[in-house]
Design a protein around this nucleic acid. Sequence first.
DNA 1: GTCTATAGGTGGATAGAC
DNA 2: GTCTATCCACCTATAGAC
Lengths: 217, 217
Amino acid sequence: MNDQDTSDSILDAAEELFAKQGFAATTTKQIGSAAGVNPALIHYYFGNKEGLYRSLLGRLFESIMARGAEQLATSPPPDAAVRALIGIQSDTMVAHPSFPRLLARELVDHGMTHAGDSLSRLSETLFRRLCELIRGGQEAGLFRRDMDPRFAAVSVVSLVPYFHIARPVVGILLESGPEGPDEEAMRAYGRHAAEFALAALAARPDARATTEPAESG
Amino acid sequence: MNDQDTSDSILDAAEELFAKQGFAATTTKQIGSAAGVNPALIHYYFGNKEGLYRSLLGRLFESIMARGAEQLATSPPPDAAVRALIGIQSDTMVAHPSFPRLLARELVDHGMTHAGDSLSRLSETLFRRLCELIRGGQEAGLFRRDMDPRFAAVSVVSLVPYFHIARPVVGILLESGPEGPDEEAMRAYGRHAAEFALAALAARPDARATTEPAESG
DNA sequence: GTCTATAGGTGGATAGAC
DNA sequence: GTCTATCCACCTATAGAC
């Protein structure tokens, strides 16, 4: 086993364990054992436990940010772009189950010990792009104008991550067993989320009338 | 200080520290120090650290579930009910900042060491009620029928919690400083979330046409 | 690069005085 | 009920052999 293999297997094992148990609850012994290497090698390759965590988050967030930015580079019409963004979120999280958990832990821990800015940069880059898209859609008359574009952007990006973060509990609610929704259900939710977001954003042909339901039938 | 005061001050201090740092990263010494009591009293009142955590989650989730169930008891029309539910979420999280963080930690840790079913019961009770509401709204022609009511319910309940879970990062995105959005911004987002959800759910007067934007101008 | 052995420190929990 | 003292387990990190 060359050093690349060794450090990769440590990163892989740590990613899964940190996602499942959290940073503090995971021991270097567990990581070494799961990776099939001696725990002392963690210090040889990454300096210390926190260095390992940083490396792993960097590797994960950079690769995902690259994919997202690439997809949004070809400026499509706003509604197609929103659909594409949600599709990327869903595909990424289906393919990489430890990502939403690590993301959730970093979101609540933000500013504490760890990763710090790789998450901030990921968010900022994609988020600003999304805000502009929504504002553009509003100006084009495609999206309703009575929503703050930044709030709308938060709402758009919240749907898929929340589903995956809450996956064990969502599994109970959807009656898909204790393992959470299966892959097909996760993909189906991704499609739903895109429809839900676009329906929320869409301008109404006859605005005022539809928000107030028929009263006193 | 009588025993009620003592155990309450331990619960309060632990709630804040567990929310901020997580269960494993918080020491009994920290809790005792923050509560102004001897750490050994944790074992006197709660048996062990995990017993303390369970008590605290129970206290928090029960009180919130009670408030939510009470509000939804008076069966209002579906759209008003959705608005009310999101309002409760927002009010609860604004008033009780440690709740969203503890919720997030429990969501990702679910099935691991801790609380287990106080969260499941909270979710199931309110969630089933919401599913029925949405299905009812669909049958009444108030909500669009081409959405799975359970997926729609997940989407509806995801908005406000995600905003609060991601509060530190959302603060960066909204440029409200490192402390996250202030109370007014949080309340404003709550109002937005209700509009966003209702717009997504609402039936269109002329359905098919609006989802496809004008093509090849 | 990889392993063993171990140092150094901390955390949860208990016993027992008050 | 509250405090002090302490035990034991365990975890991170390092030194040093191979």
